[in-house]
Nucleic acid binder design. Structure first.
Lengths: 224, 224
DNA sequence: GTCTATATAGCGATAGAC
DNA sequence: GTCTATCGCTATATAGAC
């Protein structure tokens, strides 16, 4: 069990989000702020940090460069805001419910397929790559990303596996570790190759087979 | 000893390696070439492609910038040479033997510990991050990296697991998939967090526990 | 607050001397 | 072959008009 909850991660970033028309004078144009943020999200994700110029962001957003600087102090601030917004928007809509009648295998297959689709998406891949390269330079980014995405999924799965254990469906001693194993297997070699750029994403058929195989192995390993 | 002979990826890169004092006129200074390559390897790995300037490489290598250009045509060529050299130097010294008397669990633990140490090394992490960011722009890099490192390890493990199955120690229907699962579990959440920059590498004790847990789960899943 | 035009700096690549 | 000095380009950030 690990926590990296130091330093109130959320409050630090709020001023750069869409919620704050603060400060003296006329309130700024929120629509333009939104447009800038959208453009920044797309460009940073596709081109990376260094290759994305403030000019390009301004042009894509349909505003002038100075307007960008007016809303966001500098390039780094804009980048952090864009990444943060992308992370919080990455709401994984996975179902972690365990109905009384539903067979466990089917529940795991559903979760597996949804997760597989999520991590195979272009946006997810790009975001992961970006965090991996820049997380070292700015640990706050890693924290924001991990706690907004992977950590929440892990926690929900952990809770589900605990219920599974309590009902005696499987024998799971450490639900946190088991949850990690499950998603780790789902990512697996295909996702590794995808992130590396060595192979494209699995097609629908292969993805389905992969999920079934992983669920099978997971059940084998934790069968009572 | 391994080879990466598909699509002659090697010959393309040889002129940039240390082996070629070719061409007319006085042979170039190989010591300087080596120094440049060493400096490039270190700087590219730590700073990334964009943030590493040719000036910095020249300074670090103790030569002038034009000497760098003399040995390597341009920045991209130098980068490819540096990454390629790093990949081939990443010799994983893992033992994939299966002595008659040795208990299977011990063999897997040995492989697991070696692999765990390899992927936790600073150089390995940096190299992986770099390939993930630039592999999309230059698929050759991904190919060089993957076939020089991960693929070779996978193949050896696959062969070992096939022997394990033949001896009846485990029931492994698809050794290739099983090998992927094994290393995937070994990497696991800790390595994912390490790559993201969210958490430091496991200490010796935790790493050992992690490997033992993974080996245990692997044996549970494939026990006949 | 927003725009056009510009100052300033850093980097990749090259010309010419030794 | 190697070095010093420089060109050309791009991008961040800012000054002044509306």
């Amino acid at each position: 069990m690990y926590h990296v909850h130091q330093l109130e991660p959320v409050h630090v970033l709020m001023p750069n989000d869409l919620t704050a028309p603060v400060g003296p004078g006329r309130p700024k144009d929120l629509a333009k702020r939104q447009a800038i943020l959208e453009a920044a999200k797309q460009l940073f994700l596709t081109l990376g940090y260094a290759s994305t110029s403030m000019d390009a962001v301004a042009t894509a957003a349909g505003v002038s460069k100075l307007t960008v600087y007016s809303h966001f102090t500098d390039k780094e601030t804009l980048f952090t805001a864009a990444i943060s917004a992308t992370c919080t928007a990455q709401l994984p809509e996975l179902i972690f419910e365990l109905p009384d009648g539903a067979p466990l295998e089917q529940v795991l297959l559903n979760i597996g397929c949804g997760f597989q689709a999520l991590i195979s998406s272009e946006q997810s891949v790009q975001l992961t790559r970006l965090i991996m390269t820049l997380g070292t330079q700015d640990p706050k980014l890693s924290q924001i990303f991990f706690e907004a995405g992977p950590l929440r999924v892990l926690r929900e799965m952990e809770a589900l596996l605990r219920r599974v254990d309590q009902r005696g469906l499987l024998r799971i001693e450490h639900p946190d570790k088991a949850a990690e194993h499950f998603f780790c297997l789902l990512k697996g070699a295909p996702n590794y190759r995808l992130l590396l750029g060595y192979a494209p994403a699995l097609d629908a058929e292969a993805a389905q087979a992969h999920v079934e195989e992983v669920v099978g192995m997971f059940l084998s390993a934790y069968r009572p």
